[in-house]
Amino acid sequence: MNMYDSPEREAKLDQKATKISARNVQVYYGETHALKDVSVDIQDKTVTAFIGPSGCGKSTFLRCINRMNDTIDSCRVEGTILLEGEDIYDRRVDPVQLRAKVGMVFQKPNPFPKSIYDNVAYGPRIHGLARNKAELDDIVERALRRGAIWNEVKDRLQSPGTGLSGGQQQRLCIARAVATEPEVLLMDEPCSALDPIATAQVEELIDELRQDYSVVIVTHSMQQAARVSQKTAFFHLGNLVEFGDTDQIFTRPQDSRTESYITGRIG
């Protein structure tokens, strides 16, 4: 890998398939130009971390990938984002179908005020993934196992999800997100509300999820990015400054801004 690898070039070099391909994405909130000309390729079965100071547009870009920005009236997105070659901003795309394919985990654990079972079963239910109760039970168990929380909740599936601890709630939310069998999992600072032990559990989980999904994670913690991700993108003031292998970004950053950020001089 030489010093002048562009993101596109690097994607080609990699053996893994490109899952999401963004080209010249611009996002405006009213008059504010929040995201400027972002082009990035996100690979399948890889953890991609977005880092950068607050307000740099990393969450905005994440929310573009499953069109959560549609819910904000003043938000306007330009450019193309392809999911397996299909433009997700095409007029024919229903965001509801997209979001079933691109799951999302939020910063604050946000379980529904329902039972643990219903939390996980909600997605499969509305998408009609189960034909009967037994199948649904199966899906719920599988999702909870994949969320690494099955052993803790298997005896109290009917108790409220909001009664769990913060870390358990976040893993429940991850289980809920994987229950709909998504292909991409977006995580918006999933550990910022958790203590170090819960964070370690969630990070371990993220590493396991990489076997089946393409995971995109926004994080404020550079250590976390270094620990869990294979690819890292650095955003600054709405620009994608640098994108590359995590090792390379943290050891040999090519942009002076990246270097300043990871060494703690800007942020």
Binding site: N66, M68, T71, V96, Q97, L98, R99, A100, G103, M104, V105, F106, N110, P111, F112, Y122, G123, I126, H127, C173, R176, A177, A179, T180
Partner: peptide
Amino acid sequence: DAALGVGA
């Protein structure tokens, strides 16, 4: 957000 996020 949670509901929209799972595709509701």
